[in-house]
C-alpha cells in the first residue's frame, strides 16, 4: 500500500548553509515501514514509520548498528526494494523503481568484471544513448578525477579494493544522477584507504554538491562527511534523532580532528548510540 500524503511532519530543517539559497526537498521519505517474511509465518519489522526529508545538495548520513535497516532504507530510495508501507519520493515523485536520477555505490563495488575500467565507467553513458567518443572522453576525465588515470584498460580483478571503489564511484558519477546512494561504500576497505577515499569523496562532493545519502556505521565517518547525521535504532529500525553537523566547509581532516566541535559531535553521537544498548557500533 502506498499512502500518498502531503503532510510535512518531518525532521527539523538543517542549519542553512551560508550563501546557499533555501534548498528544495530532493528526497522525501513518508511513513515508510518495511516488513520481511522470515522463515515460518512470522514477519520481521525492519523499518518502522520512517519520516525524513533530504534537501537538494545535502550530504546526509544514516548511522546505526548493523541490522537496524539503514541499508534497506537506502534500497527503498534506490527503488530496489518496495516499502511495505508509506512511500519514498524523489523530487516529489513517488519512487516505483530504480532510475538514473539515483546512482548507487555499494560496499561490494558491484563492478562489471567482464568490462575493463573504462568500459565500466562508460556503461551508464552508453546506456543513456551518449555517443561513444563523447562517453569515452567524459569517462577518461572522471577516471582522472578519481585518481585512476592510466588504469583505463585494467580489469576489475586486477585492482585493489580502494581502486575498485573509485571505479564504482566514477561509474555512478558518469551518468550524473541527482542523488548518490552510498551503501557503506568504504566498509570493506582498510583504514588508510578508507581515509583517503573519504577525503577524495569530500573534495568531489564539495565541487558539485550532489545530494548524498550515505549509510555507515562509523560515527567519525558520518560526522566528518555530513551536513546531517540520522541516528537509527534497531529492531525495529526507526529514527532516533537527526543531528545537524554545523561544521565549516570545505573541511580538512587535519583541522577537523583537532576541532573540539567535531570531537563533541562524535562523542555525543556515540553516546546516543550507546543509549540504545546495542553492541558492535564502532567501525
Amino acid at each position: 500500500m502506498k499512502v500518498v500524503s502531503l503532510r510535512s511532519d518531518v525532521q527539523a530543517e538543517p542549519a542553512a548553509l551560508p550563501g546557499v539559497a533555501p534548498a528544495m526537498a530532493m528526497i522525501h521519505i513518508d511513513h515508510v515501514s518495511q516488513r520481511f517474511q522470515t522463515s515460518g509465518r512470522q514477519s520481521h519489522l525492519a523499518l518502522s514509520d520512517i519520516n525524513l526529508t533530504i534537501e537538494d545538495g545535502a550530504f546526509v548520513s544514516i548511522l546505526g548498528p548493523s541490522g537496524c535497516g539503514k541499508s534497506t532504507l537506502l534500497y527503498i530510495v534506490g527503488g530496489f526494494v518496495q516499502p511495505s508501507d508509506g512511500a519514498a519520493k524523489v523530487k516529489g515523485k513517488v519512487i516505483t523503481g530504480p532510475g538514473p536520477d539515483r546512482g548507487p555505490v555499494f560496499q561490494e563495488f558491484a563492478l562489471f568484471p567482464w568490462k575493463n575500467v573504462l568500459g565500466n565507467v562508460m556503461y551508464g553513458l552508453r546506456q543513456q544513448g551518449v555517443k561513444k567518443t563523447d562517453a569515452e572522453a567524459k569517462s577518461r576525465k572522471l577516471l582522472e578525477m578519481v585518481g585512476l588515470k592510466g588504469y583505463e584498460n585494467f580489469y576489475p580483478k586486477e585492482l585493489s579494493g580502494g581502486m575498485k571503489q573509485r571505479v564504482a564511484i566514477a561509474r555512478t558519477l558518469a551518468y550524473n544522477p541527482a542523488v548518490l546512494l552510498m551503501d557503506e561504500p568504504f566498509g570493506a576497505l582498510d583504514a588508510h584507504t578508507r581515509t583517503r577515499l573519504q577525503n577524495d569523496l569530500l573534495t568531489i562532493w564539495e565541487r558539485d554538491r550532489k545530494t548524498v545519502l550515505f549509510v555507515t556505521h562509523s560515527v567519525e565517518e558520518a560526522v566528518f562527511l555530513s551536513d546531517k547525521v540520522v541516528v537509527m535504532t534497531r529492531s525495529p529500525g526507526s529514527i532516533k534523532v537527526v543531528v545537524d553537523i554545523d561544521l565549516p566547509r570545505p573541511r580538512k581532516r587535519a583541522e577537523l580532528l583537532l576541532d573540539p566541535r567535531y570531537q563533541k559531535y562524535v562523542v555525543d553521537i556515540e553516546k546516543l548510540i550507546d543509549d540504545t544498548g546495542e553492541d558492535e557500533i564502532h567501525a
Binding site: P98, G99, P100, F106, E108, Y123, Q128, Y175
Partner: peptide, 14 residues
C-alpha cells in the same frame, strides 16, 4: 550473479 550488479544496471536504465 550478484544482485547489486543487477541493481547497478537497473539504476543505469537497463
Amino acid at each position: 550473479v550478484e544482485e547489486k550488479m543487477l541493481w547497478s544496471g537497473a539504476a543505469m536504465g537497463l
